[in-house]
Simulated scan of single mutants.
Amino acid sequence: MKRHAALQQLSREHHIALKLARQARFASDSGNPTAIGEAAEKINALFAEALEPHFQVEETDLLPALAKAGGETLVKRTLDEHAELRALNQQLSAADGSKLSRFATLLNDHVRFEERELFELAQDLLYPEH
């Protein structure tokens, strides 16, 4: 999908998130407590260095502009999912396979939603010249 320059870096960062979701899925599906714990530790580290900064850019720059332009429903969903991902990340320290599974599913679905719906709407409303 061709992205407007303002969305290209965010879109590239989604690749990292999808890889992380996939790793979380493999670990949770394994049922192996060691693999689950290692995945949870990796997620905690990458969340702080990659996902949280990504969320902050979206929440500071993209989402307010999109809400003003008429995208309130998708903005609310995005913020709700960011909040749930943050909460799940905090709960992963217990190395719970079901929480890791929920994190994997939500992160994967969230990235797909942003790429297929949120960013498409942003391009239409904020960057119509794309």
Rank of each mutant, 00 (worst) to 15 (best):
N108A: 12
L62K: 15
R112G: 07
E84L: 12
N89Q: 13
D96S: 13
K76D: 11
R112D: 12
G70M: 04
L107P: 04
F55D: 12
F103T: 00
F47G: 00
K99A: 10
L121V: 15
L66D: 04
I36E: 06
E49S: 08
L63V: 11
L118E: 03
T34H: 13
A87C: 05
A35T: 03
P64A: 15
A67R: 13
F47Q: 02
H82W: 01
D96H: 13
E41I: 13
D80T: 09
F103P: 06
S30L: 10
L62W: 12
L51P: 00
R112P: 01
L74K: 12
F113S: 04
Q123G: 15
A69K: 00
G37D: 11
K99R: 08
D124N: 15
E81G: 10
L92I: 09
D96A: 05
T73Q: 12
A45G: 00
P33N: 02
N32C: 04
R77C: 02
P64E: 15
R102T: 09
T34L: 15
L74Q: 06
D109E: 14
T78K: 02
P33Y: 10
Q90R: 12
A104Y: 00
D96C: 12
N89M: 10
G70P: 12
T73M: 13
L118I: 01
R77G: 03
N44M: 15
G97A: 14
L107D: 05
E41G: 07
L46P: 02
I43R: 00
L63I: 06
D109A: 09
A65M: 07
A40M: 14
L85M: 05
V111W: 02
A35S: 11
